[in-house]
Design a protein around this nucleic acid. Structure first.
Lengths: 321, 321
DNA sequence: AGACTCGCCGGAAACGTTTACAACTAGCTA
DNA sequence: TAGCTAGTTGTAAACGTTTCCGGCGAGTCT
């Protein structure tokens, strides 16, 4: 920039103004433009950031950036972030509380303009770090009501209820549920949703618990088949559902004739299976998009008070039920 | 930092030194540490970057951050990048040449310390932008030999050959191939690999072309079944393979008895299907890891001359063949 | 013709760090 | 005791921008 200004025979102030389109006389504009062209000037993003106190970077932190649900969220977030001329920084936290709170604390360094985080387990340390954060944070997932942090959530409890109702109306009675760990936020919500819906229909519950993974779904389904085969299985996410489907097919169980299957999250996996798996959409893409929008709006106006967006679940019926 | 120094009664230089562990007398260290503690000082990442001329950010640019292959790469890259204390910025380019070259040009702004890019189509503009880039670039995928840019690649031509040989040795003769667009780098390589392998075995080729997507695979397989059913199908990636499998199962074709199926990329999809799909691993994770390592080494020593790493393909035989 | 406005310009401060340099002290050696 | 070394400290420059502010000239109004 110094050299551009020198070459154009103007001050660096004028050069800066011209390069940012902030006026200038026609001659100076021409001179500076030409000088910049000949020396191949490109502004330095860091210096600009230092001055403007913005990095135009948005962080997204999740347990595993390979999980289809998060991939879908990330895609949606990336799209709105990119559209706003910003860029996305991704963090894989491995679901470790320490990592996540460390990340939240690092926001104080202002290395990004804000963060979208979807903690799978929510501790007091999380909440403390979030409300203390000097940079805006948006949480995807449940959050205690009193916490004043932007939040987009879905209602997986009624999501499960949709699945149960659907199966019951199809005449199923022995509806089992394969859940993820109960000490996680989604695991706990799904558990209570399932129990309540079953109680409402006067049915007995049957629950298997494992990780939110394919392999866990396969194993859990095998267990279910081993003792008093159910006539329907609800899975806490699509990975589990695909695993369960695998076990059912291997065992020669017909889906949906013998056992109906309903997944959750409605990721591509559900569409790509055979038979295609019915799944409760929790609007991953919509939640990602909303979260990004909330964050951008808050960055623009930090005085906004905390908002809470709800994306309603929706049952997508396919061949498996 | 000013306030910390003032509170501790030392100069900001001393404060900075203490906070970075660059010596200082025991008393000053104590005073500064305490002052920093009481005011809750956190260093500003941008200012530090301006001084050090590093952002500790690495960019990863691909067509679609939701594609399982790229997800796997991204995971691997994120892991080594995070381990080095840096962070990952992701870009979804939509495969558009303009977007990608724009991204490469933006490297001049030094908003990241380097970029890993995997262009699906490679133009002269790409190459020009890469060699002209002031920040290090690593390319995942084919690259003309003379281009002096760090590069990690696989050999999908012999990858296809592995699949063909395997199917031939299993007695298959009418081996069809479902490919992606021929004007893409991977599409072209796979095409020539398939043709050559078939020629070598004295077999006639049969090729369907579509996108590198599930739906394209489904449609292509339907076409193949419609006219002179093959006894084996090779797919240019796992998404296509899963789509093809779907079409086969819907048509009542037994896999692998009637038609054998081999995918490519060996993503989780292949393991999660039923039957599990044989797939040619192109080492996505390994390529991502290598690319990240190359980039980090080059950042440390920019004088290094361009290196070229090759990850050999490997056939993983499962139930579908 | 004088007062006023407006647009353009350059000097300089600012953003928040790190670090080269010089000055100083204390401890040691010859 | 003079001289040297090692360690510590503060001043100030540097990183590369943007922007505030005052000055200046040209045009407009009375």
């Amino acid at each position: 920039m110094h050299t551009v200004a020198a070459l154009a025979g103007v001050s660096i102030a004028s050069a800066s103004r011209v390069l940012n389109g902030h006026g200038g006389s026609p001659e100076t504009v021409a001179k500076v433009r030409e000088a910049a062209e000949t020396v191949g000037y490109v502004p330095n993003a860091i210096a600009r950031s230092l001055q403007s106190q913005r990095t135009d970077l948005i962080a997204f932190a999740v347990e595993d950036i390979g999980n289809p649900v998060y991939v879908e969220m990330m895609r949606a977030i990336e799209s709105v972030v990119a559209e706003s001329g910003r860029q996305l920084v991704v963090h894989a936290t491995g679901g470790q509380v320490g990592q996540e709170t460390a990340l939240l604390k690092r926001l104080a360094h202002r290395y990004v303009d804000g963060m979208i985080i979807s903690p799978i387990r929510l501790t007091d340390a999380h909440v403390a770090a979030m409300v203390a954060s000097p940079a805006p944070v948006v949480v995807i997932g449940q959050l205690p009501d009193e916490v004043q942090v932007d939040n987009v959530r879905t209602d997986s409890r009624t999501g499960i209820a949709l699945a149960v109702d659907h199966l019951v109306s199809g005449g199923r009675k022995r509806i089992a549920f394969i859940n993820g760990p109960l000490d996680t936020v989604p695991g706990a919500a799904r558990d209570s949703g399932y129990r309540e819906a079953m109680r409402r229909h006067g049915l007995e519950h049957r629950i298997e618990v494992g990780e939110f993974q394919y392999e866990a779904g396969r194993v859990a389904a095998e267990r279910l088949l081993g003792s008093g085969q159910p006539d329907a299985i609800i899975c806490a996410n699509d990975l589990i559902a695909v695993g369960a489907l695998h076990a059912l097919l291997v065992a020669g169980v017909r889906v949906p004739q013998d056992v109906a299957l309903v997944g959750m999250d409605d990721t591509e996996l559900a569409r790509m299976s055979y038979p295609q798996i019915s799944s409760v959409s929790l609007g991953s893409a919509a939640r990602g998009r909303l979260a990004a929008q909330l964050l951008l709006e808050r960055i623009k106006d930090p005085a906004l008070k905390a908002r809470r967006e709800l994306v309603p679940p929706q049952l997508v019926v396919r061949e498996s039920s």
